[in-house]
Structure formats: C-alpha cells, structure tokens
Amino acid sequence: MPIIKTEALTHIYSMGSPFESVALENVNIEISQGEFVGLIGHTGSGKSTFVQHLNGLLLPTSGRVLLDGTDINSSKKFRHDARFKVGLVFQYPEYQLFEDTVYRDISFGPRNMKLPKPEIDERVHEAAGFVGVPETLFDKSPLELSGGQKRRVAIAGVIAMRPDILVLDEPTAGLDPEGCESILKNISDYRRTTGATVILVSHSMEDIAKIADRLIVFDGGRTVMDACPEKVFSQADKLRSIGLDVPVATDIAARLRELGVSVPECCYTVEQLRNAVLSLKKGAAEC
C-alpha cells in the first residue's frame, strides 16, 4: 500500500470570484514508503499547492488525499495528526523562527504534539544532529545565526516531529554552492538513517538529478511526467517546452551523441558522464 496517495486531486483558488484559478487538476500520485521523490515545475505549476494538500493545510476542491489508506480530511483529528506525520518545510523556512532560543524553536513542533519532556529533549538533539546544528548554538537566539544556520534550525524544527514523510519546498534556495551541497547531503543522510519518505520540491535540476530516485513534473496544475530521472531528462525538449532546464550534463551528452560519441542516454550527472566517457576511452560503453 502506498504511504501517500492522491485521487483525482483538484484545487481551485477563489472559486466563484473573478480571480478564480485552477491550481491543480486531477492529480493522481502514489508514493511508497521510503521513496525519494523530486517534484519539479516552474513557479505557478501547482507543485507548492500540491504539497500543501499532503498535510491538510489546503483542502481539496475535489478528490482525496490518502495517508496510509485513510482520507486525511475524513475527520478533524486525522487532519490534525497529518500535520505531524507529513512534515512540511516551506520555502525560506528561516522566516518562521520565532522563539528566543534555538532549542525552543526546534522543540516547538514536538511540544505541540504534547510529548513528554524527555522525549522532546531527545528529539531536539536528534534533529539538530541530522542537520548539523551544534549543541553550542542551542541557547543562542535564532536571530544571531547566519542565513545557512537559520535554515538548518528551521528544517530541524520539522524533522523533530519525526514525520513519516518529509516534504521540503526549495530547501536550497538562496544558499551558496557549499551550503546547497551540505544541506542536500544532510537530507540524503537523514533519509538513509531513518528510512523516511522524502519529497523534494525544486526547480534546480542539478540538485534533483543528484539525489532523487523518481521525478514528477508539474505543468499547469497537472502531472506531465512521472518516471525515473533518466527517463525524464532524456526528454529535454519536452522539459524546455514547459519552461524547465535540463542538467548541463544532459546537454553535453546530447551534443556528444550528435558529434558521434556514443555516450548512453541515461547520463544526467557529471559523474555519470565522466564514467561513460572513461569507459568509451577504454572501449566499452556502459552507464
């Protein structure tokens, strides 16, 4: 059974007003326990609206969201619980920090879950560990931290709820290359250690290419592709036609094939392309 599933999910903003707009239209997605899914699409494609349905923040205009087989909007209590089972990290999450210490901010979610104190403490330490927030920062005000550290604290605040599904909306936006890389590594490690399902929303193809196992592409409120990265990136023209980039490695590989170098279609990271070129040099092409 999929851990989360949407059935004919449709969302229309400002229904009945002149500003009415269809944000999602008949979206059917199934995600299994432990998957690492990347959601891509340009701004306004519906991906952010979609993820806000997964924890019940938005109500479907029609259709259902099933969490572990139960409609999350079937009861008020279930919708409330869904908030903790599906941890949602918004874009620029550092803007939501509000407590006077880092420790208290990370513990906000667990406290709302009404957990006993020792467990809250354990979770705060664990979550901080996952995202690389050292304990020496616990008593500091979040406002004193650097941009990158704030981002980590905010992500820890969601991880501390130990969600079954962790959803991150553009977690690397605005960070420098080193910051991006280390946050992505933290997320990968978190997933490996806990076995949690991770959904990463991004418009950075390079980031997504590196870590996701499955890509879902949104355009105009619909899912237009749902496949493994190799398959998705091999349709470079289609991606470009809906305003998305393809990883640079895909472009180089395509040009190489035009030049008569038979690198396989499934190369979409620099690492894979390097391996393909090296094996061509040795005489055997593989991916």
């Binding site: 999450p93 939501q96 509000f98 979610g109």
Partner: peptide, 27 residues
Amino acid sequence: KITNAQKARGADFETGKLTDRAKALLP
C-alpha cells in the same frame, strides 16, 4: 505564509481560550 508554516508544525490558531489564542499568535 508564516501562518501556514507554523500550522505545519502543529500550531493551533483557532481553538482554545482567549488567552491561549493570544499566546498562539506569537509564532
């Protein structure tokens, strides 16, 4: 946006006594 982000961490802006609700506005 902030309201939604805090709701995602289980913040409750809608129920409780008036004093609780005032306190709940801090986040």
